[in-house]
Amino acid sequence: MQALSEWFTELLADNTIFTAQTLGYYGSGLVTTVQLVFLSLIIGLVLAVPLAIGRSSQRRWIRTPIFLYTYVFRGTPLLIQLYLIYYGVVFFDGIQETWLWVLLEEPFVPALIAFTLNTAAYTTEIFRGAIKATPRGEIEAARAYGMSRRLMMRRIILPSAFRRALPAYGNEVIFMLHASAIASVVTIMDLTGAARFIYARYYAPFDAFLFVAAIYLCLTFAILYLFRYLEKRLLAHLKPLEQ
């Protein structure tokens, strides 16, 4: 242990880039990235459940607006959505005088809105697919028990749809983490923002970006592990029986 810490001190002493100050930038960048991604995923998930139910509704006036929303947000690049929300809001005259400006002045909230709307659109489509793929037998059985539509949705369709959606949703989470790297274009100092700052400061693109890539890899690994655990627990009934 002692040898390890000595080795580490020596390693740090030998370079000019990874000082306490720059590691501090990476640290606060990590916090910002995790906050941004976590919050947008949670809010996006909460929005996506009713939207997915509405999206698979029989009624056209419910189905169509939700389809248009997912179509627009899946059909345009996230970077453009971020630009439009961050720079677009200021074209409403007098917005600086309203209470909204307190939220929109800092780049965090506009970025959070863009990321949330984007991930909610994708998640809605993932859930819709899962809801549609509910086996007919399960629905018929529920009907035979005399369940109302609402009860059937809550007890039968949604739980089984969530399980089916899990692997695809895990991908969406990882995509979201990586997509958050564009936050630095609107001055947010997230992980990528920190790396770009250090790159520009020390003219060391390789070191700065390699280090940040390693942090992203660690985050991705944690997400993969979490979803593998969830799949193992929630999809246990789909596993082939052990011989």
Binding site: Y87, V90, V185, T187, F197
Partner: peptide, 18 residues
Amino acid sequence: INRYDTAEDLVLDMESQR
């Protein structure tokens, strides 16, 4: 300190009082 890719982005945020 807000860091921008271009001077134009910076001008936009000066105009919007960010």
